[in-house]
Lab assay of single mutants.
Amino acid sequence: MDVFMKGLSKAKEGVVAAAEKTKQGVAEAAGKTKEGVLYVGSKTKEGVVHGVATVAEKTKEQVTNVGGAVVTGVTAVAQKTVEGAGSIAAATGFVKKDQLGKNEEGAPQEGILEDMPVDPDNEAYEMPSEEGYQDYEPEA
């Protein structure tokens, strides 16, 4: 019985440690998101679009440190934060509304985080759909 109880105690310690790591990862992701939003706020009209992409990228980098179902929630929060940063930029006159959601080359930025393969159960990952990809044929 002692062996059984000791095993359960060790398992509990492992769960607590994993929860603490997840909590730490979420806190880091939130900190990076805040950094990115402050970065966007300090940019001029020309830099705002690039700044919004930076927020998304920093958040995406930190999301990889967070495991399990938390990833889905962090990704949703990050996307809403990026959308909010863009709205703030438009409201303050840093950028025109028609410039939001495009990178410096004018290509749409939507789907940055949505296409990231995420499995809350950590069982399997699927690649994003290939609808947006084109076949590449090298020139002879």
Rank of each mutant, 00 (worst) to 15 (best):
E123W: 01
D115S: 11
V66P: 01
Q62D: 04
A85S: 06
L38S: 01
D121S: 12
V55P: 01
V74W: 09
K58Y: 13
D119C: 06
G41P: 00
V66N: 02
V49H: 00
E83Q: 08
A107N: 11
S87L: 15
D115V: 12
V77A: 09
K32E: 00
G73W: 15
Q79G: 06
T75E: 09
I112L: 12
A27E: 01
V118Y: 05
A85L: 15
I112E: 10
A19Q: 02
E137D: 07
V15D: 00
A69P: 04
G132F: 08
D135C: 12
V15A: 01
K34F: 11
M116E: 06
N103W: 12
T92N: 03
M127W: 14
V48S: 02
V55K: 01
K60T: 05
T22L: 09
E105W: 12
A91M: 14
A124G: 08
K21L: 13
L113D: 12
G68E: 02
V37C: 09
A107Q: 13
T22D: 05
D119M: 04
K80L: 10
Q134I: 06
D115Q: 11
E139R: 05
Y133A: 11
T59Y: 00
T92Y: 04
Q109L: 11
G84D: 07
A124P: 12
E20L: 01
E28Q: 04
A89C: 10
P128K: 07
V55G: 02
E104A: 09
A90I: 05
Y133E: 15
E137A: 14
I88R: 02
I88M: 09
S129W: 12
K96D: 07
A107S: 03
M127T: 12
E130N: 08
E126K: 14
Y39H: 06
V48R: 02
Y125G: 10
P138K: 08
A91G: 13
G47Q: 00
Q99K: 06
V71G: 02
M5K: 07
A17K: 09
V52P: 01
K102T: 07
F4N: 00
G101T: 08
A91S: 04
T22N: 01
M5R: 02
M116H: 07
N65Q: 05
V49I: 14
K32D: 00
K80F: 15
V118W: 13
E123A: 06
K80M: 10
T33M: 15
D98K: 11
E131G: 02
V48H: 00
K58I: 14
D98V: 07
Q99F: 08
Y136F: 13
K32I: 09
Q62N: 04
K45S: 06
V82S: 06
P117K: 05
V16N: 08
E139P: 14
A53M: 15
E130Y: 13
K6G: 01
E131N: 11
K10R: 05
D135G: 06
A76W: 02
G68Q: 03
D121W: 04
A76D: 06
P128Q: 05
A29D: 00
A76H: 12
G51P: 03
A124W: 10
G14F: 08
P117E: 14
V3P: 00
G93P: 08
E20H: 15
K10A: 10
V95S: 12
K60A: 13
D98F: 03
E20W: 10
Y39V: 06
Y133D: 11
K6C: 06
T44L: 06
V71W: 11
A29M: 04
A30E: 00
K32A: 08
P138H: 05
V49D: 01
T75N: 13
A124T: 14
A76I: 06
T33I: 06
E83D: 09
A91I: 14
